[in-house]
Design a protein around this nucleic acid. Structure first.
Lengths: 101, 101
DNA sequence: AGGAGTAGTCATAAAATTCTGACTTATTGT
DNA sequence: ACAATAAGTCAGAATTTTATGACTACTCCT
């Protein structure tokens, strides 16, 4: 018993909920559904957001496998964040949530 | 316009997500699905939880209309927290989330 | 009348999240 | 060569969330 608390059997939904509820996350998710996103654009279009938080949020969503980070090696050479398959699977859940809010 | 940012058109899912993701919330929700809950019992059975946070969490869930607070005027005279209809409507969403976690 | 149980509140403290502003690295346009 | 754009990182500050421990008020049992 190295950890007296939370010894494993935690709520499975907990982690996912916390991930999705973080600041700017739902915003990002919604935008990702609409199409590929780019860092600096997000910074401009999401009123009030700051680099740091967006950066962290994107990284978390990516780590969780909800977003794919893609380097586009063309013309202006940039990075795009796309909704992954796993991310798309969450869309109906978001819709239900919005439906009952 | 006390708040210069987030002037209205926010993600509808945002608030609900934040509500559900707070500490002990999923735990409480799960227990509420299993049956009526009582304050001191929760304090004992939820390892690591503290009065204050539970109190606040219950109040928030109640305010959001997910739990009903019922005073039982019988024998030992106590209070019970029940899952409301609105709360029950969230159950399938939780299940889906758990399914993909 | 005294002790235990139930359901909290309150002020304060510690911890986690989010924000700010300065700085970085690489690519592109003129 | 220089400035702008793109995509960040970093340290420190401000804010928000959670946790602690002490205390209240009411009921129940003996």
């Amino acid at each position: 018993m190295t950890t007296p608390e939370n010894t494993g059997k935690e709520c499975p939904a907990q982690a996912l909920l916390k991930l999705l509820a973080g600041k700017w996350k739902p915003e990002l998710f919604k935008l990702a559904v609409a199409g590929p996103m780019r860092f600096n654009s997000l910074l401009r279009q999401i009123n009030g957001a700051n680099k740091q938080s967006l950066s962290v949020a994107l990284k978390e969503l990516e780590t969780a496998g909800l977003l794919d980070k893609i380097t586009v090696s063309e013309k202006p050479l940039h990075i795009e964040y796309h909704l992954s398959e796993k991310g798309k699977a969450l869309v109906p859940i978001f819709e239900q949530l919005e439906g009952m809010a």
